[in-house]
Design a binder for these strands. Sequence first.
DNA 1: CAGGAAAGTATTGTTAACAATCATTGTCAA
DNA 2: TTGACAATGATTGTTAACAATACTTTCCTG
Lengths: 237, 237
Amino acid sequence: MHGLQHQGGEVADQIDEEAIVDRIFEAVIEQRLPPGTKLSEAALCEAFGVGRMRVRRALLLLASRDIVDLQNNRGAYVSSPTSNQALEVFEARCAIEPNVARIAAARATKSDIADLAKHLKLEAEAHHVGNRRQAIRLSGQFHVKLAQIARNNVMERMVKELVTRTSLIIGMFGAPGTSNCHDDEHQQILSALERHDEDNAALQMEKHLKHIEGQVDLKKKRKTGVNLFEVLHGEQD
Amino acid sequence: MHGLQHQGGEVADQIDEEAIVDRIFEAVIEQRLPPGTKLSEAALCEAFGVGRMRVRRALLLLASRDIVDLQNNRGAYVSSPTSNQALEVFEARCAIEPNVARIAAARATKSDIADLAKHLKLEAEAHHVGNRRQAIRLSGQFHVKLAQIARNNVMERMVKELVTRTSLIIGMFGAPGTSNCHDDEHQQILSALERHDEDNAALQMEKHLKHIEGQVDLKKKRKTGVNLFEVLHGEQD
DNA sequence: CAGGAAAGTATTGTTAACAATCATTGTCAA
DNA sequence: TTGACAATGATTGTTAACAATACTTTCCTG
């Protein structure tokens, strides 16, 4: 299901740094890596079975996206967004994603709609079963999928970064139990796409984002810190 | 004027990779580094006086922003955007920057306005004197300054990336003599900011971006390639 | 003379050893 | 007992040598 299993012993044991970046992105989105978690090079080497160079390159890329915080001579830590940064991220999302939804509404094909509907079904299922991690992951992936439907790689990358940082923000400032999104709001966006109603798609997205923003309380922080190794090693082998 | 002079012989001869990234960004914006230019590690080491590691890190960061193209075992080249990528960049700019202008109009202080007015004066002067490079650089910097006035670092980074890629696009598809922007349109945006007229700021920006997009012809490509060393070594020492 | 193969050169990618910095623990003195 | 200081261990940052790949030139053959 994840596309990284050992296949026959031929290839697939050589991982490139982009895969590492993606894996850490996912772990952050699913909130398995809370803000402040130390990402030591040795642990990452062990977890992914690669050399130090690859790990350092991956960490640099993650730092350039503000997902991790690279401290001088002290190592890499999962970013702990400040309330100011949180405001900036939400503001950026409100500026960008309604337009993503608008473009997606203009370009969505039948196949896109069907795919997205299936995605929503998975979301609802994960929510119903109580699989919180998968629910969070699918919920964030919905926003990325919209950018894919909009056929714009630039915006897709931006949305991916913003969604991931939002997970960190919720980890810092959100109530412990809350997930990222409400399914029904995603459903309404899908409806707008189905009708190719661009304005409504943008509007629904804007409301949706305001809703997410309302779930966090930028006054009080929660402080975390978690054992890195188990989190990443669990799904590795 | 550039902030990188030798100060007393104490510090300042040690350059970090972010400075390298910024320098290459600038060179690309000013179109001193056309698409397709080879960026060999040795040449960059020589030009900046740093070790290979720093150069490779800088190249990785530039590649993650799609400014350079890292080819396997073949080295780094300044990106040559395809027409599709060009469309994506323009679309992203039209989605983001009007909102940047809107937010800037809401938050601009007297000091911001004065600073921006001074900037426009410099732009006009460079244009008048015929200093094309500086005109292009200031013209691009105007868009970044708007993001700074909007007080949003996330968007500032995005705009910086998009502006730089636009320079590459113009280098690929634009007429040889055209610069990035028209000064009077910048002036109109400034006026809107001065009046705190958010809607008009966004509107003017949208028109401005459409204008820029109209300057390129995505049908025909121009092919280039330039000697790296002289370009970067000239302003170094 | 042209096309292609092979050797040599140059450039990139990787690994490993070394240096430097930081964190921790233990000790000593107030 | 507590605070500061020193020594030890661990982790990160850098450098340099090595390996692998691509490019260029030369030479041979058709």
